[in-house]
Amino acid sequence: MAIENVYQISVINRQQVFWLPQGEPLLMGMEKACQHAINVGCRGGGCGLCKIKVLQGDYQTKRMSRAHISEEEQALGFALACRLTPLSDLVIESDHFKLHTQQPKIS
């Protein structure tokens, strides 16, 4: 199905598909479309709740908390959906958020 000016987002772990207007950040676009395929947290790249892995597609990201997306993970396609804007159709996995119970945070 070809639709103008939208990208298809496939969230494979939840078996959900929705469409996002081009230029819209992934998480907030999903909320506007009344979809529930990615958990919504702070919407500012801080809390990590909307951590996803992109399996296919192009995208750009704004700065994300290193507490949740390390440089290595970023290179592997992990991202916070609130800071990610798709540049093509995407295939993603949501629900990658994990608590960090081991090391205390260093200020």
């Binding site: 947290g41 702070c42 919407r43 500012g44 790249g45 801080g46 809390c47 908390s65 609130c82």
Partner: peptide, 8 residues
């Protein structure tokens, strides 16, 4: 509410 970096 949240600041632009996600601090509440």
């Amino acid at each position: 509410f949240f600041d632009p970096s996600g601090n509440r």
